[in-house]
């Protein structure tokens, strides 16, 4: 009995250590080989097929187009909207089918609308950027504009407006060029069926807002900032003077130099780098940002400008009059 009592604590400890409930999920031995076999069969038949959403039973093109315009809060002409969603490849495919069946039904594609749309967008984005970045040079503005109207950006916008499934195209899933083209056509359709102001606000809300949280200086690569800066400063009649205002760890791997740029003995900007030349270039870049008022701590771009922004010459005339 005494022996049993002595063993009791050891026994109870052992019992505690034996897991009573197993938390493992039991998966049958046949599951993995079956899944593998199914995967092999799928590959043998030419990969996974994605069926277009518009071939599903629960699909109503008319309702989709209605919801599309309501979602964006715009009034579209329904025929123009359908035309904006019709890609050229779809029209060609349909015509081939029709010649086989011996009848002709005219379908319009979106090329005309997309031309109108891109023309309007080019003009509006240029004006808008000039209005919100008044001191940024023209070359820079055109670089930002090219980024905003590039295929990738427009395709991304179009995808997130839910056009992917509605587009009538020969291929599925549609590629980026078709998406970008459709977005241009949608803008064109809105311009035609609503007003210029509505189309402008649409472009502002969906395209120009893509600059939110981005650094506008990154879209414009300046080859030689020092040359540009000296030319700009020379126009005002002043001269610029770079000074080495700090150096640490000279002749080591961790060398750091700091250059300050002075105009009339007043500091314009500073820059640092591992050599004096790099530090000077960085200082020049910083100074250019200051001159263009696009510093890192610049006020966020205004995304609420109403109507068509005025051109530079118009606004200058107004300030002269007042």
């Amino acid at each position: 009995m005494a022996f049993f009592r002595r063993c009791l604590p050891i026994l109870t400890r052992e019992i505690k250590n034996i897991p009573l409930v197993k938390h493992e999920v039991h998966i049958h031995r046949w599951v993995a080989p079956t899944l593998m076999e199914l995967k092999h069969r799928e590959i043998r038949q030419g990969g996974k097929k994605t069926f277009p959403r518009n071939t599903f039973l629960e699909w109503n093109l008319e309702a989709e187009l209605y919801a599309f315009s309501k979602r964006l809060g715009e009034e579209f002409d329904s025929e123009l909207l359908l035309q904006a969603f019709t890609d050229r490849s779809y029209v060609i495919k349909e015509e081939m089918k029709q010649t086989e069946m011996d009848f002709a039904l005219k379908i319009k594609d979106n090329r005309e609308l997309s031309d109108k749309g891109i023309k309007f967008m080019e003009e509006y984005v240029q004006l808008y950027l000039e209005a919100v970045l008044p001191r940024f040079p023209k070359e820079g503005i055109s670089c930002i504009k090219n980024h905003l109207l590039s295929e990738n950006v427009l395709a991304n916008v179009c995808l997130h407006l839910g056009a992917k499934d509605i587009i009538l195209s020969a291929e599925y899933p549609v590629d980026n060029s078709t998406l970008a083209n459709t977005f241009k056509a949608i803008v064109g359709a809105l311009y035609e069926s609503s007003s210029e102001e509505k189309a402008a606000h649409f472009v502002r809300d969906f395209v120009i807002t893509q600059l939110q949280g981005q650094d506008v200086n990154e879209y414009w690569h300046i080859e030689d900032p020092w040359k540009m800066l000296t030319e700009l400063i020379a126009k005002t009649g002043a001269s610029i003077e770079p000074r080495l205002i700090g150096q640490v760890g000279k002749g080591t791997l961790l060398a750091c130099y700091r250059v300050g740029l002075y105009v009339d003995k007043k500091m314009l900007s500073t820059g640092f780098g591992e050599t004096v030349a790099i530090a000077k270039e960085m200082a020049a870049r910083e100074a250019l940002k200051k001159l263009f008022s696009t510093e890192d701590n610049m006020h966020p771009i205004n995304y609420k400008l109403e109507g068509m922004p005025m051109t530079k010459s118009q606004s200058r005339q107004q300030t002269m009059l007042s």
Binding site: A67, N156, L161, G162, G213
Partner: peptide
Amino acid sequence: PLQNGVGRYVCQLQR
């Protein structure tokens, strides 16, 4: 998604 709300709000549920 897509800077929703910077310009205008778009309900993200499409169907």
